[in-house]
């Protein structure tokens, strides 16, 4: 059954305003979904609060993504889609970033483990850094990809390099450059990995590695 489209903003907005005051800049309701624009500096606190506060409990991070609008004046936006599984309620959080400013927001991998690859994808496609991310490498493009961040509006559709150069780089790179060593073989690759990653893998779900 489709739930009726909510007429007003989510009840979370009032609660957010009460808890965070001016850090909640504005909210919109679009097609029944509430979108809350917040301060970049407080976004991590706000996400944690939304996840943990009784009555809110947005326990599921649906997606992290970013938007750059065709209108060049408009700011870049980073978007978090949250869902409270028990109440079946959605909330969307946005942060605006100036294109010439530092493109960075705090990571939320400490709140939702699943944010890992989502944030890597946003970094890969938009060049937005997630400070505190344990392993911020490109996700879709290969790690040595040098042409920039493809979903930015100043990125030409066919890329910056000539087709021959793109082909050369693609062919010339060893597979090891395109796939991380842990993907190819964890055991052989161990000594190439940074210490923290080695630590993580050794005690993770990837089995025993010496």
């Amino acid at each position: 059954m489709t739930p009726a489209v909510a007429a007003g903003p989510s009840a979370s907005v009032a609660a957010l305003r009460a808890a965070f005051g001016p850090a909640i800049r504005r909210h919109d309701v679009v097609a029944g979904d509430t979108i809350v624009l917040v301060d970049a500096a407080r976004v991590h606190d706000i996400l944690a609060w939304l996840r943990d506060t009784p009555g809110q409990r947005y326990d599921y991070l649906v997606d992290v993504t970013a938007v750059e609008y065709r209108d060049r004046e408009r700011l870049l936006e980073v978007v978090w889609f949250l869902r409270a599984l028990e109440r079946a309620e959605d909330l969307r959080l946005k942060v605006e970033l100036a294109k010439d400013g530092p493109l960075a927001v705090p990571t939320c991998t400490d709140l939702w483990r699943g944010a890992d690859w989502l944030e890597r994808e946003v970094w890969d496609m938009f060049g937005i850094r997630f400070s505190g991310h344990p392993d911020l490498r490109r996700l879709l493009m290969w790690e040595t990809y040098a042409e920039g961040h493809p979903l930015r509006k100043d990125f030409p559709l066919r890329g910056h390099f000539s087709r021959a150069e793109q082909t050369r780089q693609a062919l010339g790179g060893a597979a090891e450059k395109h796939y991380s060593l842990e993907e190819l073989s964890i055991a052989d690759a161990m000594h190439y990995l940074p210490d923290d990653m080695r630590e993580r893998l050794a005690h993770g779900h990837h089995g025993e590695v010496e």
Partner: peptide
């Protein structure tokens, strides 16, 4: 095989084909 310049076809051919 892939040629010494790292391409399978000459660069102009790749550009032309693409």
């Amino acid at each position: 095989p892939v040629r010494p310049d790292g391409l399978f076809l000459p660069a102009e051919r790749v550009d032309e084909l693409s």
